[in-house]
Every structure is written in structure tokens, then in C-alpha cells.
Design a protein around this nucleic acid. Structure first.
Lengths: 259, 259
DNA sequence: GCAAAAGTGTTACCCGTACACCCATGC
DNA sequence: GCATGGGTGTACGGGTAACACTTTTGC
């Protein structure tokens, strides 16, 4: 907490006029990634109900309020859209072009979050909610977003959200190797198999990993460092050999920390 | 440019009231790195002339105006402080805690820039300008900034600028290996030696590089890829063997691009 | 000659990759 | 049995790190 150092300064602060200059609006937008039923990387989009870009799909977000930090605003938006709280969120950049929004000057701070598989109960065609998961694909000239019954190109997204989404994807693909982001996609981080984590890596990077190498990597990077531990239990009923179940040792300290 | 799709939308936009909600102020702050005479990594700080944090050292910055993008505001601040234009700038994060600034709600978007050695003509003790270079050092509990005749700890910086500076440093140290950031420190990117570039890497990473290995790296990463080319000339008057001079092939396209 | 930097060569080791192979489980 | 995934072994190759050594220039 800041303490003024003189009476003069107290007077200055008391009489300061915050409205001397015109100000922009600021939003916090959050790119929510998850894995869909087919283990493909998906993103949550909402259909805009009002102008501008009415009926366009957009990244969820909203205005930052005066009583909350920007990070808090992003977390609040995440909760409003998904019902999920206390997930680590990662800032990916701020977008501040003058004409981003036709209503007025809006600067957006973008974040991303990773949501456990199947934790979003958004049904296909559940149009009442106007929120939907889209599988993220690539074609020659950009992203393609594949919903249950609709396919859209990145250029159809509202505002500059195509740009935001592209940057989020790039960041995720970079970060997956040296952060704990991948664990955010796990259904249950206190009981998971190496195979599940491998599927997450494959979905994000869009390439298959070698089973043996991934296993050794996992043991070295996470288990031998004490971040993850063997539960002593085995999976069952999977239609194949029982696998060792692992858990994250200290879920509390599991922010968006780096290795 | 956005085009309304209906008359109804035109009316909506025309009648939209941007001042429905209270808004924060937004600043663009820029961390300016350079190498000092001793080839140590240094940062430009300015001494605050007014309240709050009067007489404290701070990262240069200023309010984003309504007619400029946030990136443009950062570039403008860079020019105002250093006189330098058209340098690549890199966004490093947005800082949006509620109480960052005792005057009012201020959200700061932080950038960093790299400035050629000796291009800043800030003399030590030139107090009229209130701007000074500080060598960046580390001690047990954080950054130490060493000026020509004063030494300050990170905790003495204004606002949350210690945090911003720490993040900038971290980013720079990561980025130096896979971006072209290092070239920004060169006095003349159309005539430089491998040794000069090596000194830059050493200043940033605070560790010495092996001559032979650095050389081979340089040739492989930059020369054989066509980013940098041999000028055919040799350095002279250095007190040691003449070195090959290299130049960046296409300085125009030399943004903060990644390799 | 000496110091400082330029430039070349060589070697040892680590690590990523690829691939082969056996094990366990459920259908 | 067969498909699927779990788990182990191993061998090759490339790249990095470490270091030795020669060359050139200015003082």
C-alpha cells in the first residue's frame, strides 16, 4: 500500500482529477481450451447476441471493472462462462489497435485457460446458451473451427479475435514443453495415466509421440523432480493392460508455473 | 474497417454511449535495454519529477492517447525518451492490479526495446534530463541497479516497476536464443563482428560463451540461413587480429521476428 | 614479444529418435 | 486370438560442450 510522503503529496492525491483525459475501455478476454470427446484440441466460443458483430462467434470476455484487477476480471469471465474457478490463467497479450471495436476505443487483455476434458457441459445445438466448443484445425490459409454442426473460418470471428486465437495457439504449443499447462487438461490430476497426458500433448502439437520416449520424458521431467508421484494404484477396465496411476504432488502450488 | 450490416445496427452504434461505465486509464511503459561502456546490460530509468513516487526512479512511460494504438504509444514514449524511432518493440505483459497507482485506476502495458550501444547520450550526473542508465545486477534478494554515482535496489523503484523489470529481464534472457533481439544492441547492424555479438549474449545471459562454439552457432543460425551475410571487409585498428565484418541482409524486415 | 581476439580442429559425451519387443487386459 | 495400450531395451546419429591450438594485429 502506497503512503504519501508529505502533506503536499496528500493534497495532490486528494485533488487529482482522474477525468482530465479521455480514457479507453478495457476488456479481459479468455481463450478457453479443452479436449473434446475425440481428444482433439477445442476452443470455447460464444455467439454474440448484440451489436456489433451480432451472431458472430467470439472469444468470451467482458469489461474490466474498477474494483477488480485485470487478472481477476479474466478469472471472473472464465467462471461466468464455464462455472469453473481457481484455474490457472495465463496472459497472452494485449490488443490495442484504435479501431478494434466500432462502438468505442477498447483495449483487450487476452488470457488463456485450460479446462479438464468433459468438464464443460455444453451440448451440441444447445442454442439457448449460445456457447459451443469448436475443434481447432488448420487449413492452407488459417484456422478452421469445427463445431458439431457448423464450420467457421477464422476470418468470420468477431473483432480481431482470429489474431488473438492464433497467438493463443502458438503460445500454447510453445509452452506445452516447458510449463505445466498440459496437466490442466486432465480430467483428474490426482489420478491419471501417462497415456492420458500423451494424448493431450498430441492434441496440442498435432503430432504423435513415441510411447517409450514420452514415458521416459515424463518420468524424468515430472516424477524424478517430485512434481508428480506414483499413487501406487493401477487403472482398470480400460480394455487393455492396467496402467500406473499418477497424481500431482502439490496441486495447490500448481499455478501456470514454469519448470 | 467494420461495416454495420443493418440500419438497426447503424442506429445502435450511433447512439452507443461509451461513458456508460467508469473506465481505467491505460499507460504504455517501455523498458529500454542497452549495453554500457563496459558491455554490461543496462536499463534506462527516469527520475519522477511529480507525485506520486516523486524523486523515485521509474520505467519511462505515459498514457495511451485515444488516437493511437497501444503499440504506437509505446513507440512514441521510446522516441520521446531516447530520440530513437522505428526500433522493434516487444510487448512483455500488462499489469492491472487495482492499486498500482495511488492517483487512480491505471493499467499499464509494458514493452521492451533494445537500443544500440552508445546511442543514448545520457551523461552521468546530467540531472537536468532526469534520465540515467543503470547497470542491471543481481544480488541475493533481487535486482540491483547501478548508476554512475548511485545504486538502488529494485524495491526503491516506483509503482510495480520492479516486477515489470524482472519480467522484462526474464523474457529477454529467454528470447535472446531464438529471436533477433541481440542484433538490436549492435552499434551498426551493417558492419559488426562475431565478437561484438558474443559480448551482447554474454551481457544478457551473464555467462561467458566459448569462442569457437559461438562462432559455429552464429554461422549456422544466421549466415547459412541468409539472415546475415559477410561484407567481405575486415575490421581494423582493434589491437588484435582483423575480424570479418558481417551485416544484416534485410534490415527492413528485421522486426522482433522469431527464427 | 606479448596481449587480445580471430579462427580451426578434434573429441567425448549426452540426448533425442527410432524401432523392436514383450506384457497385461478386455472383448 | 486379437486389439489396445503398458512398459522395457537398445542402438544409431547429431549436436553440444570442452578444450587445444594456430593466426593475425596493435602496442
Amino acid at each position: 500500500m502506497y503512503k504519501p510522503k508529505s502533506d503536499e503529496e496528500k493534497v495532490f492525491l486528494a485533488e487529482y482529477d482522474p477525468d482530465k483525459y479521455e480514457k479507453p475501455s478495457v476488456t479481459a478476454d479468455i481463450v478457453v481450451f479443452t479436449l473434446d470427446a475425440k481428444n482433439s484440441l477445442s476452443v470455447l466460443l460464444i455467439k454474440r447476441g448484440g451489436y456489433p458483430y451480432k451472431d458472430c462467434w467470439a472469444i468470451p470476455g467482458g469489461f474490466v471493472e474498477m474494483v477488480e484487477s485485470v487478472d481477476t476480471a479474466a478469472a471472473r469471465e472464465l467462471k461466468e462462462e464455464t462455472g469453473l474457478e481457481n484455474l490457472p490463467i495465463t496472459q497472452i497479450g494485449t490488443f490495442g489497435e484504435v479501431d478494434r471495436d466500432p462502438r468505442m476505443r477498447v483495449i483487450s487483455v487476452a488470457y488463456m485457460a485450460f479446462v479438464p476434458k468433459d468438464s464443460l457441459c455444453i451440448k451440441a445445438g444447445d442454442d439457448a446458451r449460445d456457447a459451443q466448443l469448436f475443434e481447432v484445425k488448420n487449413d492452407e490459409d488459417g484456422l478452421v473451427l469445427v463445431g458439431e454442426r457448423n464450420v467457421i473460418k477464422e476470418s468470420e470471428l468477431a473483432f480481431d479475435h482470429a489474431k488473438i486465437l492464433r497467438i493463443a495457439l502458438k503460445r500454447l504449443r510453445n509452452r506445452i514443453d516447458y510449463t505445466l499447462d498440459a496437466f490442466g487438461f486432465l480430467k483428474d490430476n490426482s489420478s491419471f495415466t501417462i497415456y492420458e497426458l500423451k494424448k493431450i500433448h498430441e492434441a496440442v502439437k498435432l503430432e504423435t509421440e513415441d510411447t517409450g520416449n514420452f514415458r521416459r520424458d515424463f518420468l524424468k521431467k515430472y516424477v524424478s523432480t517430485g512434481l508428480v508421484e506414483n499413487t501406487g494404484k493401477k487403472s482398470q477396465g480400460t480394455g487393455s493392460r492396467a496402467a500406473t496411476l499418477y497424481r500431482i504432488k502439490d496441486p495447490e502450488s500448481f499455478g501456470s508455473s514454469e519448470l
